[in-house]
Design a protein around this nucleic acid. Structure first.
Length: 152
DNA sequence: TCATTCAGCGTAT
DNA sequence: ATACGCTGAATGA
């Protein structure tokens, strides 16, 4: 099974679902997304993402994400537990998992499904930190969750 | 208050 | 072996 759809937002989010594994990525250029008929699973994900982008608190824990590396999986599993509207720092997670803040950042960079795995909720100790999809997008996501973050 | 350095650890080459 | 990160603490001016 392979399905692709785009969720409208300030930055449209492209979603690929392959055998129940979800991948996402923000699009910088505008796309005309024509719809086909999606599976119940993909349709549910699409609706959840639409609710999320309209400012609702949404739980994405039922969706599956395939992660190759053991270490990345460990970090991202922790990140999935960060609640809506909450943040942790790279250092927090490093301490908890007995690793280094830089290694945590590296693992977040390898996140195959931004938003579904909320790596935007991990910020630097003083400032917003980085984001694989662009810090401007991270800032918008945090604003969506009513979080004030200093840009640094 | 900066700016610069470097410890630290998982990856990629 | 070695270079590099979505960092952070330490150092020095």
């Amino acid at each position: 099974m392979f399905e692709r759809f785009v969720v409208a937002w300030k930055y449209p989010l492209e979603v690929v679902v392959e055998d129940l594994y979800v991948r996402t990525g923000f699009l910088r250029s505008e796309v005309n997304a024509q719809e086909y008929c999606l599976s119940d699973y993909s349709l549910s994900l699409k609706e959840d993402l639409e609710r999320y982008f309209s400012g609702e608190k949404v739980d994405f824990s039922k969706y599956r994400v395939k992660i190759k590396s053991e270490f990345v999986r460990k970090v991202l599993n922790r990140v999935r537990k960060i609640g809506y509207g909450e943040t942790l720092t790279y250092g927090d997670i490093a301490k908890e998992l007995r690793t280094s803040p830089r290694a945590v950042g590296q693992a977040l960079k390898a996140n195959p499904a931004p938003v579904v795995i909320p790596c935007h909720r991990v910020v630097s100790k003083n400032g917003i930190g980085g984001y694989s999809q662009g810090v401007d997008i991270k800032l918008e996501l945090l604003k969506l969750e009513k979080l004030n973050v200093t840009l640094k």
